[in-house]
Amino acid sequence: MKKLIFVLTTVVALAFSQMATAQKNIVDIAVGNKDFSTLVTALKAADLVGALQGDGPFTVFAPTNSAFAKIDSKTLNSLLEPKNKKALTNILTYHVVPAKLMASDVVAALKKGKGKVEVKGLNGQVLTVMSKDGKIWLKDQKGNYSEIVATDVKGSNGVIHVINSVVMPN
C-alpha cells in the first residue's frame, strides 16, 4: 500500500510540475527562447518586464532577433539607452494588444472584415492586420509590413505571434 501511495504521489507531482512548466507567462517564454534575446533586452531597457508578467491577457507580436537586425544598429543601440526609454516603450507597447487573440480569432476577424482588421496596441495606436498572398501581415502606422511567421505560442497570461520585422508607431 505504501508503494502504491508513493507511486501515485510521484505521478501527481510530475503532472503538476509539467502543468506549471506549460503555464509560463509570455515574458518567461521569450526569455527561454534565444531568438527573442534582443526583444528581452529591449523589454528590460524599457522597464516593461514586470508589466508583461502581469495577469493580461496580452497578445504580443514578438519580433525575432533577425527582425531587430533589420533596424540600423546605431539606431537600435540608441533606443536601448536610458535617455530614449520613452521612445522604446512606445515601440514595444505598439507590439502588444491588451487581449488574447489566437490565430483562429484573427482569421475569423479577417473574414468578417474582408481581409483586413484593426487592433489597438497598448500605446493606443492602431495596427492593421491583413491577409495578403495567403499570409497574414501587420501593417504599421508608417505603412511598413511585417509577416506573422508563427502563431499561438501560449502563455499563462496571453499569446505570442512571431513577426519578421519590427512594427513602428507614429
Results as ranks from 00 to 15, higher is better:
residue 165 S to A: 13
residue 77 N to G: 15
residue 97 V to Q: 04
residue 116 K to W: 05
residue 121 G to Y: 01
residue 119 V to H: 11
residue 170 N to C: 06
residue 131 S to L: 04
residue 166 V to H: 12
residue 41 T to Q: 03
residue 94 Y to C: 00
residue 99 A to T: 04
residue 24 K to P: 11
residue 165 S to V: 02
residue 168 M to D: 00
residue 151 T to D: 09
residue 98 P to R: 01
residue 10 T to F: 15
residue 142 K to L: 12
residue 63 P to D: 00
residue 5 I to N: 09
residue 57 P to M: 07
residue 47 D to Y: 12
residue 43 L to V: 00
residue 4 L to V: 11
residue 49 V to Y: 08
residue 156 S to G: 03
residue 125 Q to T: 09
residue 1 M to H: 14
residue 127 L to Y: 01
residue 167 V to E: 05
residue 67 A to N: 05
residue 124 G to H: 00
residue 88 L to V: 08
residue 140 D to Q: 13
residue 45 A to K: 09
residue 85 K to A: 13
residue 144 N to K: 11
residue 161 H to N: 12
residue 121 G to K: 04
residue 94 Y to D: 00
residue 95 H to Y: 08
residue 70 K to R: 08
residue 58 F to Y: 12
residue 59 T to V: 11
residue 79 L to C: 09
residue 38 T to L: 10
residue 16 F to D: 11
residue 62 A to T: 06
residue 145 Y to D: 05
residue 95 H to M: 13
residue 138 L to R: 09
residue 84 N to F: 15
residue 35 D to W: 04
residue 56 G to R: 06
residue 42 A to K: 08
residue 51 A to V: 10
residue 28 D to L: 01
residue 138 L to H: 00
residue 81 E to P: 00
residue 98 P to L: 04
residue 106 V to K: 06
residue 61 F to K: 05
residue 113 G to W: 13
residue 166 V to A: 02
residue 78 S to K: 14
residue 151 T to V: 15
residue 136 I to F: 04
residue 87 A to E: 15
residue 167 V to R: 10
residue 147 E to P: 03
residue 125 Q to V: 00
residue 25 N to R: 03
residue 85 K to G: 12
residue 156 S to P: 06
residue 153 V to R: 10
residue 1 M to P: 15
residue 25 N to Q: 09
residue 100 K to I: 07
residue 45 A to V: 02
residue 154 K to C: 09
residue 52 L to D: 00
residue 2 K to P: 04
residue 110 L to A: 01
residue 33 N to W: 06
residue 139 K to E: 07
residue 26 I to V: 14
residue 22 A to N: 04
residue 151 T to M: 10
residue 60 V to T: 03
residue 149 V to A: 08
residue 107 V to R: 06
residue 77 N to F: 08
residue 36 F to M: 12
residue 59 T to P: 08
residue 121 G to E: 06
residue 85 K to R: 15
residue 145 Y to P: 01
residue 97 V to D: 02
residue 26 I to F: 02
residue 158 G to T: 11
residue 130 M to E: 14
residue 145 Y to S: 08
residue 29 I to H: 14
residue 139 K to V: 12
residue 140 D to C: 02
residue 41 T to H: 01
residue 7 V to K: 10
residue 5 I to M: 06
residue 137 W to F: 15
residue 84 N to H: 06
residue 1 M to T: 11
residue 111 K to E: 14
residue 105 D to M: 08
residue 79 L to V: 07
residue 9 T to R: 10
residue 65 N to G: 12
residue 65 N to A: 03
residue 25 N to F: 07
residue 78 S to F: 06
residue 55 D to E: 14
residue 125 Q to A: 11
residue 116 K to A: 15
residue 157 N to G: 04
residue 169 P to E: 06
residue 38 T to P: 05
residue 94 Y to I: 00
residue 74 K to C: 03
residue 95 H to F: 05
residue 168 M to Q: 05
residue 62 A to Y: 07
residue 48 L to W: 10
residue 15 A to H: 14
